[in-house]
């Protein structure tokens, strides 16, 4: 078990509280959450059923926090959550959920699936299974203060007033001048009156 995977599973265990346990206990797999999920309604692909996106978190709950699940684990009957599985689930938990909350609003047993997705992301991030772009943006935010990685040079370039163009620089940019004059000549003469 890698250190990051252990961190991820520990984060899963930490985010499971009484509401989450009651939600997983109540699900009867009626599939109504899928009927509201835009990722399912637009694609028709059943893997986007919201409750399915939570499967690794559900198994962690069952194996750690129920007597039956613990007994099954002791007897070697349960399927443990693996690092590879979490990697495979990353597109479902991040890219296929906008946290819009539709599923949480229609679930007939009252499961707040959106909350559980948010909680599951905590474990996924701890295990390093957040999307690459999100990880680098976070790292940049921590190291430089800017998620976009903006440095002083960039700020300076923007705040320093540009020098007025010299004759030499003018002749070096013939196309841009030509374009701008063309654009101004294309402007309709009556554009003011229509405003």
């Amino acid at each position: 078990m890698s250190a990051s995977f252990e961190r991820g599973i520990n984060a899963f265990k930490e985010v499971i509280d009484a509401p989450v346990a009651s939600f997983f206990s109540s699900c009867v797999h009626c599939g109504l959450c899928a009927e509201t999920c835009l990722f399912y309604t637009e694609t028709g692909d059943p893997q986007y059923a919201p409750i399915r996106k939570l499967e690794p978190l559900r198994r962690t709950w069952f194996q750690e926090y129920t007597l039956l699940g613990r007994l099954a684990k002791l007897a070697g009957l349960s399927k443990p959550v693996t690092d590879e599985e979490l990697a495979a689930w990353s597109p479902l938990v991040y890219d296929s959920c906008s946290m819009c909350g539709r599923c949480s609003m229609v679930c007939p047993v009252g499961n707040d699936l959106t909350l559980m997705i948010r909680k599951m992301r905590e474990g996924m991030a701890a295990d390093g299974h957040a999307p690459e772009g999100l990880i680098t943006a976070t790292t940049r935010a921590v190291t430089s203060g800017s998620p976009a990685g903006v440095k002083w040079v960039t700020v300076q370039a923007q705040t320093t007033p540009m020098k007025p163009p010299t004759a030499a620089s003018r002749s070096a940019l013939p196309t841009s001048r030509a374009n701008s004059s063309a654009a101004s000549s294309r402007r309709p003469r009556n554009s003011r009156s229509s405003a």
Partner: peptide, 13 residues
């Protein structure tokens, strides 16, 4: 068990 736990789940929601 949803006959019992659904009341908790709905309340939390």
């Amino acid at each position: 068990f949803h006959v019992v736990s659904l009341f908790m789940a709905r309340w939390y929601n």
